[in-house]
Amino acid sequence: MKSAADFIDRYARYVFPLPAVLAIVVLIVAPVLTNFVLSTYDYFVGGRPIFIGVENYTRAFGDARVWNGIRNTFYFTFTAVPLQLLLGLGIAVLFNREFFGRPLARTIILLPMVATPVAIALIWALMFNPSLGVLNYFLESLGLERSLWVAQRSLAIPSLVLVDTWQWSPMIALILLAALQGVPIEHYEAARIDGASGWQSFWHITLPGIRSAIVVALILRSVDALKTFDIIYVITEGGPGIASETLNVLAFKTGFQFFHAGYAATLLIFLMTIVLAIAYLLNIVRRRT
């Protein structure tokens, strides 16, 4: 036993991180490598895998449906995330002030975030229904025209953005609120003494004070939004047609419905590249701030 203890003592710097390294290898490195290998095969599940080299990649580059998926992924992400940032910032600033019932309001605003995505997606799907849904009922009682919501090509992604925004703005608010509370109150007092307006102190004190938190929130949300699956699949299945089919939804269909495991793996490599690239870019921005 003594020798084992000696061994651990001597190599503690290797032994202690070992479980973490193992977990990373088993849960992240191995699947990514397997996925990469799979992407070089033509593998129709149930049949025999055939090695085809880069053929899946050349096919994907010429596949209009893949480009449609990439376009929709970007459209969804870059509409949803800025909207959520704006709303989240607003909520954070509001909640940074003292008002009656603040603790309760803060809890309530977090509810969309903690609800199960599939469950809320099912509820939203019901609300979007053009004939029976409650959203059209509201529109009508306000004297507005009924909308087709997700049933109309041009409105499908904006409607999904609405759901995503409803669900995830609170998370941005939460991150920014923590940052806001770290901005020294003295700065505001000094600004007030110097005669700065509310806008001026927001622009010159609040924003710079939470800039790095904003970038962190942007990274987390963008990465998450790029690979959004549950709400899109449950509400529209990528439809009407392929109007809201993101790369992730297309990869799911390709792999688990059409059984082309190799091609699905290729699409996921595309998605992973996009996610990594955007995370990298945002990280550069973060380091500069």
Partner: peptide, 21 residues
């Protein structure tokens, strides 16, 4: 047909009918 026919799955079809739509 009802508005937005391209979203109708069996659940939508049957509930529209069940709700007199």
């Amino acid at each position: 047909g009802p508005p937005g026919p391209a979203t109708l799955h069996w659940a939508e079809v049957t509930s529209l009918y069940a709700q007199d739509q």
